[in-house]
Write a protein that binds this DNA or RNA. Structure first.
Lengths: 343, 343
DNA sequence: CTGAAAGCGCTTACAG
DNA sequence: CTGAAAGCGCTTACAG
């Protein structure tokens, strides 16, 4: 009952080890290891003794030792392009919120939309043999793609989806969502609908395609109404883009901004110039970010289920990490058109 | 010249190891280890041979093995209360941006302003023996404080400062910043200045004190003008708070919101209700977040140097991790009053 | 279902 | 300035 571990000397860290647990519970270290990893082939009685000893000693496994012995760490690396877009912050929170209770640590990497940075992060994180990997979208360098594949680390892609077998993804159709909101503007009777974008990442370009298709279907496509600016999106950029577009194309009667921050900027610029929204020009955004429901007028937008994407992607990854069969390799979580006053 | 490592069998991961580098460069493994850790007591010639072999073999140290042997990982844990407030996102970006080139990995923990969550994160992260720790502010449970101290892990506190010896901090005086902006409102001739807050974290309460002192000094303090709401801050909350305050205290002539998102919401609510800003009521915010310079009218606020705080804190932590003497244990990076149209 | 042995890839502590 | 030995705390692979 009281064979508490004897403090050792030398290089010992003084930490309670798996061997201590084995000694106290009267089983071999391997049995302790198996029990802790949830192996099914341990006698219930021994398992109970082990759990009791763990609790009594306050044993916490050493993740470094575990990683070294098993060549697999308890880290899950998550690569997102940006934290400036609240979208990814919410995605990340959902991922971390479901990963932590499962005993995994999240390693967050921000690529800043740059292939070279993504490669560098991948190189660094994969050298630590993470248990799993979550990456954003499918657009990356061949080198990056190869690193992921060669690593053998289970990987789930988020935000976009693909039916390609062997590739796991949870997201939504950016194309369809953009098409839906563009159609909404058409249904409102708008004739000259502009698409105003920043950042120009792959998803922004997919939205462009959805916009184009909706307009082409209606016979209203006009390339002069596309504003494609590679600068990072922000409220200020949206305001500038609004002013520039109306100066150049005074007869535009609707604007679909690729992200809500731009749209909010557009709305503020309209207020400043006393341009009536939606009377003279309707404005729509994308993502439904904080504040969009408070604007004047309130902003019509598309709500994307990023928190749910994060959760579902993590659950899918967990299954892959356990080695479970994952039959449904693609999950499309859809979107919701949120019609407010601005259209 | 060509003693390339022979592929081994058994449990080997096939990975290039430190022993491979030692063999190729013709020195002992310890010399390789010392060279890679930047020890000064290695002959330049041997060091050169080692570096050459590292490059040739593409050797990447195994962080798990290093952590196990040295009882210190290459991770730096960073604890922030929230990622919803863009303030902390920018802080984090700065930390990660200076930490990565130094070969450290950032472990981001979000406490959601909850002591219990901070304790849980600390327990989890400290069990991995991180190389360093960055935490937000000084307000935490005794248990958390003790865990940090007992761990012996170098720790830097951000956002606030304290002169207590042995405690390292980089931040600004929330009290002084709040006092400065309140004084600015007084100088504009405002008589009934409200403080409207959400979240009520320690820094928000320090700002309250700065506000109180400025008003008390001017003989204008009135507790009826304080709105202290524990809900998380958001644009929507600011709008509601604005409406409620003006209904209850119609003679208020200035509002200092504890964060820019609230202030932006207040500004939008004023627009909606056609309440003239700053004529009828002046509005000021805090932190200078995205969009504040685009509001109608543009928002007067306090710019806090969070990116610089992140960088300086990381450099201080790096010095502590190296074991260097750090004489200046407190760095106050100040703030900047940004006067725009709303006051 | 259980265990003794070996090993993962580094660094520490001790010599020289 | 350099190195041989031991060890960090786990898990793998092999037996039984």
């Amino acid at each position: 009952m009281s064979e508490l571990p004897i403090p050792r000397r030398g290089r010992s860290s003084g930490r309670v080890t798996l061997d201590d647990v084995a000694r106290v519970s009267g089983v071999s270290p391997i049995t302790v290891s198996r029990t802790l990893r949830g192996a099914r082939n341990v006698a219930p009685e021994l398992s109970a003794r082990v759990h009791e000893a763990v609790a009594r000693l306050g044993y916490v496994p050493d993740v470094a030792a575990r990683a070294l012995a098993s060549s697999r760490s308890s880290h899950v690396a998550v690569l997102v392009p940006s934290l400036t877009n609240a979208l990814f912050v919410e995605l990340l929170e959902a991922v971390q919120g479901t990963l932590m209770p499962m005993g995994f640590q999240t390693l967050i990497g921000v690529t800043h939309y740059q292939a070279a940075q993504e490669e560098a992060l991948l190189r660094s994180y994969l050298s630590q043999r993470p248990a799993g990997l979550i990456v954003t979208g499918f657009d990356r360098s061949d080198a990056a793609r190869r690193m992921i594949e060669d690593s053998g680390v289970p990987c789930v892609h988020v935000m976009e989806t693909t039916p390609i077998p062997g590739i796991y993804s949870v997201g939504l159709s950016q194309h369809q969502a953009a098409r839906a909101i563009t159609r909404h503007l058409l249904q409102r009777g708008r004739q000259r609908i502009a698409y105003v974008a920043g950042q120009l990442d792959p998803r922004v370009m997919q939205r462009l395609q959805g916009y184009r298709q909706a307009l082409a279907d209606a016979g209203r496509y006009d390339p002069a109404l596309e504003v494609l600016d590679p600068s990072p999106t922000s409220i200020a950029l949206g305001a500038r883009q609004f002013e520039a577009l109306l100066a150049r194309q005074p007869d535009v009667d609707a604007i679909f901004f690729c992200n809500d921050d731009l749209a909010q900027g557009g709305l503020l610029a309209a207020l400043r110039h006393k341009i009536e929204v939606p009377q003279r020009v309707a404005i729509a955004g994308f993502n439904d970010l904080d504040g969009s429901d408070q604007m004047l007028p309130t902003l019509t937008t598309v709500r994307t289920p990023r928190a749910e994407i994060g959760t579902r992607a993590t659950l899918m990854l967990a299954a892959l990490m356990r080695g479970d069969e994952v039959t449904e390799n693609t999950v499309d979580l859809g979107f919701e058109l949120v019609v407010r006053e601005s259209t």
